[in-house]
Simulated scan of single mutants.
Amino acid sequence: MKNISDLRKSYERAELDESASHADPLQQFEQWLKEAISSEVPEPNAMTVATVGSNLRPSTRVVLIKGYDAQGIVWYTNYESRKGHELAGNPYAALQFHWVELERVVRIEGVVERVSDAESDAYFHSRPLDSRIGAWASPQSEVISGRTVLVTNAAKYAAQFLLQPPRPPHWGGYRLKPDNWQFWQGRKSRLHDRLRYSLEADGTWLRERLAP
């Protein structure tokens, strides 16, 4: 087995220059996301969500982005999960996209709020039936005795709701409203390109290059 400290990769696919990047980070994100999708990288919509609990210990997990616009980045989950409890106590979070094949990383920081009930309802009812039942069946982040608990719960709620399960009151969307973006493009000799966008008081974005 190769020693992990000897693993190396030279990043040479692309570059990220201030003159060629968008002044608005959302436009830059949209461009990169579309390129990740068109390049058919595995799960281009997967992002890591980092939150911090009352004990000041950070935690991360991977979720799927379900929407983005000038208001922020949206995903859906169980409000009673660990991340839900942590966001209730500390609404600040960080997101990260890592498109390995494109040698790109996007990092986003900001405050998080719940989306409206109407938005959560609309997305919930667009999901496949088994996913809607799963939202009822899984007491996310809680200790369970075994997988049988999930299977039993799924059968119970499927019988109860048939083809029309309502959205659980403990399930819905979050929106992160960015105030800081970073775009990282791998470059040769570890001299990577790294641009940061910081939200100014007047609502404009300050774009700066950071040393990698």
Rank of each mutant, 00 (worst) to 15 (best):
E113S: 13
D179L: 11
R207D: 03
Y11S: 10
I37G: 00
K9M: 11
K34L: 12
E200G: 01
M1P: 03
P169M: 02
L129K: 07
A70Q: 12
L7Q: 10
H125N: 06
A36S: 10
P91K: 09
A118K: 10
G134F: 05
S21M: 07
N45P: 02
A155Y: 00
T152C: 01
M47E: 00
S120D: 02
V111T: 12
P128S: 05
N3C: 05
K156R: 14
Q27C: 10
F29H: 01
F183T: 03
S141K: 04
S39W: 07
D130I: 02
N78C: 06
D17C: 11
A158S: 14
F124S: 13
D121M: 10
W181H: 08
S59E: 11
T48G: 00
L191R: 15
G110H: 06
S189W: 06
R104T: 08
P58G: 12
I108V: 15
S198A: 14
Y197S: 10
V49P: 01
E101F: 09
E18T: 04
T148R: 03
Y79S: 04
L102S: 02
N90L: 13
G173P: 02
Q164H: 15
A93S: 15
T60H: 02
L163G: 00
D179M: 08
R196Q: 15
Y76V: 13
I133V: 11
S54V: 10
V62P: 03
R209H: 04
G53T: 09
W181T: 01
L199P: 04
A46Q: 00
G84K: 04
K156V: 02
S145N: 12
L210T: 04
R207T: 12
Q160G: 00
G67N: 03
K83W: 02
Q182T: 01
A23C: 06
T148F: 02
S5M: 11
A154E: 09
E40A: 14
L7W: 00
N180W: 14
I73K: 09
E119C: 01
T77W: 05
G134C: 07
T77Q: 05
R209Q: 12
T152N: 07
L210Y: 13
Q71K: 13
G67M: 10
R127T: 05
A118S: 11
K34M: 14
E40L: 07
G172N: 03
A23H: 06
N180V: 14
A155I: 06
P91G: 02
D179V: 12
V41F: 09
K34C: 11
H98E: 05
G67R: 02
E43S: 09
S19Y: 11
A23S: 12
L199N: 05
